[in-house]
């Protein structure tokens, strides 16, 4: 029976001709857009994740503590929530670093009458401490210490980037959604056309006492087949584009985003796209089925 129903659905698909092809193409576009933005968002998300791991806060101290006080201060800061590690940087080390940075111009530093650089603590936050709320709490905690002159660094720029990433995701979802609705309507039109063409079949089926689900199932299967074909086509296009473009874009991406390579969607992501496509098509078939209800 299943073979018969699938056979009928494929027969109907051939009948729908160009409209069915348009529906498949629209589903491909919708899922291609969705998948493309998903791919972009995934890679941007990876970049944000890596940057979060590299976040460092610098606590500038009012005066340089003694070795014993510095050790006690480091221990105290390490005990704050959201702190992964702490390193004390004395005034002399700071000046040494400046000399390294200046390179051949390091002699400028020698002209200074006294070392103007403050001692500091380099604080690396935990993952929780690198979130906007975690970083805010941590900065407030560090600023409240009596030894603190100023707290430098932060995660705002990462958050701005992360907001951009979420915006890309939302835009992708929106575009995919709009194209998805268009795809559903086209599948509905294709199925409705077929429905007119197979009105005689449906009448005969009802007349001989076929169960109602057998009468209607081919329409649903037809819609699902269109969705499945559109989704598979979208996955194939995404894979091909990634295969073609990723090696060319990776050097640029490595420099700008710090990502060694551009990853593709996971098998679970791809399966989700295929399921979404099949459901979109099925929904189109169901809507046409609704119109066909006697």
């Amino acid at each position: 029976m299943l073979a018969f129903l699938v056979g009928e659905a494929l027969r109907d698909l051939r009948r729908a001709g160009r409209v069915a092809a348009s529906a498949i193409l629209l589903i491909t576009l919708a899922l291609g857009a969705l998948g493309g933005f998903w791919l972009l968002s995934t890679n941007l998300g990876r970049a944000v994740g890596e940057w979060r791991e590299r976040v460092k806060l610098v606590v500038y101290l009012r005066r340089e503590p003694s070795s014993a006080d510095a050790a006690a201060l480091v221990e105290r800061v390490r005990g704050l929530p959201g702190v992964a590690s702490v390193r004390f940087v004395g005034k002399a080390e700071a000046l040494g670093t400046l000399r390294e940075v200046l390179g051949k111009d390091a002699a400028v530093a020698d002209q200074l009458l006294q070392n103007p650089l403050p001692a500091s603590l380099e604080v690396v936050p935990t993952a929780g401490g690198a979130t906007p709320a975690g970083a805010q709490a941590l900065i407030a905690g560090l600023a409240a210490m009596p030894e603190t002159e100023e707290v430098g660094g932060g995660v705002e720029w990462i958050e701005r980037f992360a907001r951009g990433q979420r915006l890309v995701t939302l835009f992708g979802l929106g575009l995919g959604g709009v194209l998805g609705v268009a795809a559903i309507l086209t599948v509905t039109t294709a199925t409705t056309l077929v429905l007119h063409a197979r009105r005689d079949e449906m009448e005969i089926m009802r007349l001989v006492g076929a169960p109602e689900h057998i009468v209607r199932l081919p329409l649903l299967l037809q819609g699902m087949t269109q969705g499945l074909l559109g989704a598979l086509l979208a996955v194939w296009i995404l894979f091909s584009v990634h295969l073609l473009l990723a090696p060319r874009l990776e050097p640029l991406v490595a420099e700008s985003l710090g990502l060694a390579r551009l990853t593709f969607l996971t098998p679970l992501n791809l399966a989700t796209l295929v399921v979404i496509g099949t459901l979109l098509g099925g929904l189109g078939g169901l809507l046409a089925r609704g119109r066909a209800t006697p």
Partner: peptide
Amino acid sequence: RRGEVAALRRSIGVVFQDARLLP
């Protein structure tokens, strides 16, 4: 009910003046 009607129709053969064959 719908299911009973379907079951009944399985026991009835109907022929129309215009044959109504699927073209």
